[in-house]
Simulated scan of single mutants.
Amino acid sequence: MQRIGSVIGIDPAHIAEYKRIHAAVWPDVLRQIAASNIRNYTIFLREPENLLFAYFEYHGTDLAADMADMAADPVTQDWWKVCMPMQRPLESRVAGEWWATMEPVFHED
């Protein structure tokens, strides 16, 4: 299992809407998350900095392939079209990233 953390900004004008839509994530999006071997997926909000921190546990054997399958899913693409305009990617992210990946520095079970 891999533990993955990532961070992105959020437009403060969209925080209420972001919370609203994530209180009722589309069932097909949730199915795709599970099919992509993702478990324990959580998004945290930090105000007043307006940062979203995502954490999930990957239980598959080919993260790149599972993420490509997710990105190719039409319903997930539609979900992202709703979410992405609300998000503000960090300038320091690696080229090609939307959410900036984070280095794990500590974990205790």
Rank of each mutant, 00 (worst) to 15 (best):
A16R: 05
A95C: 01
W99H: 04
G5D: 01
W26Q: 07
I43W: 11
Q32C: 12
I43Y: 11
A100P: 00
D109G: 08
D73C: 05
D78I: 15
R46P: 10
F106E: 00
A65Q: 14
I38M: 15
Q77N: 09
I8R: 02
I38T: 14
E57F: 05
V75N: 03
V25A: 03
V82W: 14
W26C: 07
P74I: 15
A34K: 08
R31F: 01
M84H: 14
Y58M: 07
R31Y: 00
N40W: 10
P12S: 03
Q32A: 09
R3D: 07
Q2H: 06
S36C: 09
Y18L: 03
V105I: 13
E108N: 13
E47V: 14
D109L: 14
A16C: 01
M84C: 14
N40T: 03
G96R: 03
Q32H: 05
F53R: 00
H107Y: 10
I4M: 08
M67Y: 06
I21A: 02
E57V: 08
L30W: 04
R31V: 06
A13L: 07
E47A: 14
V82E: 08
A68P: 12
P48D: 04
M70E: 05
D78T: 09
D11R: 12
M70W: 05
K19Q: 12
F44C: 12
D73F: 07
L63W: 05
V29Q: 06
A34S: 10
I4Y: 09
M70S: 12
V7I: 13
E103Y: 02
A23M: 14
E103M: 06
Y55R: 04
R46C: 15
E57M: 05
M67V: 09
W80D: 12
E47N: 09
I15C: 08
I15P: 03
R93L: 02
P89W: 01
A16M: 00
A65C: 04
N40A: 12
S6Q: 11
D73E: 07
D109C: 11
V75G: 01
I43K: 07
V7S: 10
H59P: 00
V7E: 13
E103F: 00
